[in-house]
Computed example of a mutant assay.
Amino acid sequence: MSTERERRAPAGVVVVTGSSGRVGSALAAALDAAGWAVRGVDRTPGRWTGVVGDLRDRPVRLAALRSADIVVHAAALHAPHVGRVADAEFRAVNVDVTAELLDDATRLGARRVLYISSTSVYGHALVPNDRAVWVNEQLTPLPRDIYDETKLAAEALVAACAVSSVTLRIARCFPEPLPVLAGHLLHRAVDVADVAAAGVLAAAHATVTGTFNISGPHPFRREDCLALHRDAGAVLADRVPDVVAAFRDRGWPVPGRLDRVYDSTAAAHAFGYRPVRGIRRLLRDTADGRSA
């Protein structure tokens, strides 16, 4: 007997660039589970990568984009490459490839582009003065390095392209030692599964355009910012006493000061983003002996 997945028609063809990477592969898997026909492209082979090659090569782009309804562009050089890769390479990969991909996608009839950016583009604007910075989309980015500059330039290209587009500025979501990851999940990180869920929602909501932060869930409100900079431990004890107790039971440091809080409210309102894999989920998973 065929399964429901086998009986229903695909939602459409979605191309995922960077499909062998951490974020790209998670997006590809989630889009496949949601009913899309996924075609991945990456320089490195992977579970979701059907086209292996460099997006700077036009035949590779054309092979990937054939019959595509949606393009999810996650391929890029990232922050850890700063200082190890020439600035010109950053521009070629993060900006020039984006421009060429958008041009080809538009001409080949793609109807929507989803660009994976980073909250890193806020740069120097993340530095607090007398209070933690509340990071929503109204905060003006102040790039601090070539990575921030090129991601922001690519965002502008995506916003100006001829087809419907949406940009997701994703928060920190790479593997870290558990105590560090736990601290970041309180206010400035996101689980990659929540990123993937956001991507599926943004792909499905065809009329939604613009730029959205993807982070959380975080336990704070904007009015906490002054206190978070002065005594984050007291705010945490008030907002999430169970989390503070769990940190202390594990011997993990409870932050005394927080410099920022990422706000994903706009994404919640625009396309129903509801992150679920926050600090409490991490604590439950690690208590059960599972890895984060």
Rank of each mutant, 00 (worst) to 15 (best):
R56A: 12
T211D: 04
E100Y: 07
A33E: 11
R284S: 01
R169A: 00
Y262N: 07
V38C: 02
Y115H: 15
V51K: 04
V243H: 12
N136E: 12
G109M: 09
A266I: 10
S291Q: 13
S264L: 04
R172T: 13
A203H: 05
G183P: 09
G123M: 07
A232H: 05
K151G: 00
G256P: 03
R248H: 03
P80G: 11
E155D: 14
A234I: 05
V135D: 06
V276K: 12
A193Q: 13
D242W: 00
H184F: 14
G289H: 02
R230A: 06
A232S: 01
R22M: 07
S20N: 05
P128S: 02
H81E: 13
P275D: 03
V254P: 00
D231N: 15
A34E: 08
T106D: 15
V133W: 07
S19Y: 07
R281Q: 02
L181I: 09
G83W: 05
L258D: 00
L258K: 11
G210A: 04
R58N: 02
A270M: 06
A64W: 09
A162K: 11
H218S: 08
L201D: 04
S117F: 07
A99Q: 01
T106R: 15
S20I: 10
A160V: 12
R257G: 02
R61A: 02
F271D: 03
T207A: 14
A203I: 03
I146A: 01
A154P: 01
A132T: 12
S25I: 09
A182L: 01
A292P: 03
F90V: 14
G50V: 07
L31I: 05
A63F: 05
V72S: 09
V16W: 00
G289S: 02
L126G: 14
A156K: 15
N213E: 10
T44E: 14
S20R: 05
D148H: 13
A26N: 04
E176T: 08
A160H: 08
L181A: 08
S19I: 11
S67T: 12
L101V: 06
D242T: 00
D32V: 11
D87Q: 12
P128V: 13
H269M: 14
A99L: 04
R84Q: 07
